[in-house]
Design a protein around this nucleic acid. Structure first.
Lengths: 178, 178
DNA sequence: TATTGTTATACTCTATAACTATA
DNA sequence: TATAGTTATAGAGTATAACAATA
């Protein structure tokens, strides 16, 4: 019961975070919307990677990544190198212009956060980052076509057997994506 | 320096949370998308309120709320009562059907969270909720046209107009629904 | 036959602006 | 004149499906 109420509260909190994300998105330059910025960020972080890779941490379909990559490529911020190991693949790489763009974006978002979180301590920010990271990991396999309900969950079907008021009577009404 | 790196990390973490939000949105029934669910949730939480109210915590323009409210009203999940104090206002109120719908939605999201966060303790979930709530509050006045209450930072030169002409890299956009 | 990437299509969300009916 | 709400329009994000080239 308390557990369920907590989850309801969490769901609402997550919804409210949308406002934060929109606020972050608002400071982006018109020619570099969120999706493009995401691609640049990932390439800047992890270096060259094939198209399907950035789709992973973002948990989006590859077709989405493809569009974003095409957009930034059109701006000259990345180039798509051929993959010597697989001719079907193209490997996006940040260009100097792309790096400069990324630095600019980073500067913007950093300033916004510095302003909004001016009364947060370093430890508090660090804690939040860890929490968010863990949350993201807990949803790890949430990709579109990904396996739904823990097929062979390595993490204990054991449960606690104590206050299990899960009311687990039904297995999540299927969405029937047709 | 470390502070800035932390903010960069936080920005990325927030971006990654998008995956969680999408996962949550995916379990919604086709006739009740995220916006509609948000309206129902707020009305269920705070009771009757005028149109401009739900737009506040969501930090969206009233026109957005208006659309969502119209949608749920069309489904019979709310009714719009006249405001005796102000004839311009209409006050949305949850109907029994809307309450039932809301309960169903809550059940879904709760189950999803119970599944994904099965290895989180109550305290950990509670901490996350508090962190998210505080984060949301720190961005409090982030509404579209809202004034930046920032007493700090005359920084922000912004601008930086792009030199990229809008080459028609993005083809067809014949979306004319009227 | 399976996979990588691309493209077309459709749907949701959001902001801006114009419009009405009140205040 | 200013405000509450509505509606039309435009721009961004994403998923699905069909398709091309390669494995």
């Amino acid at each position: 019961m308390t557990r369920k109420a907590q989850h309801e509260e969490l769901a609402r909190s997550l919804g409210a975070i949308g406002a934060v994300r929109r606020d972050m998105a608002r400071i982006l330059p018109p020619d570099c919307p969120g999706g493009s910025a995401g691609v640049l960020t990932l390439l800047g972080l992890h270096g060259d990677m094939r198209m399907s890779r950035p789709a992973e941490p973002l948990a989006v379909d590859m077709s989405v990544t493809s569009r974003h990559v095409a957009h930034v490529a059109g701006r000259g911020w990345i180039e798509r190198l051929p993959d010597p190991a697989d001719k079907r693949s193209r490997i996006p790489r940040l260009t100097p212009a792309g790096r400069a763009r990324l630095d600019g974006l980073s500067e913007r978002s950093t300033q916004l956060l510095a302003d909004r979180l001016s009364d947060w301590s370093d430890d508090e920010v660090g804690l939040l980052v860890r929490q968010l990271t863990r949350l993201r990991e807990s949803f790890g396999d949430g990709r579109p076509g990904g396996p739904r309900v823990t097929p062979t969950a390595p993490t204990a079907p054991v449960a606690e057997t104590s206050t299990a008021d899960e009311t687990a009577t039904e297995p999540t009404t299927p969405r029937t994506p047709a």
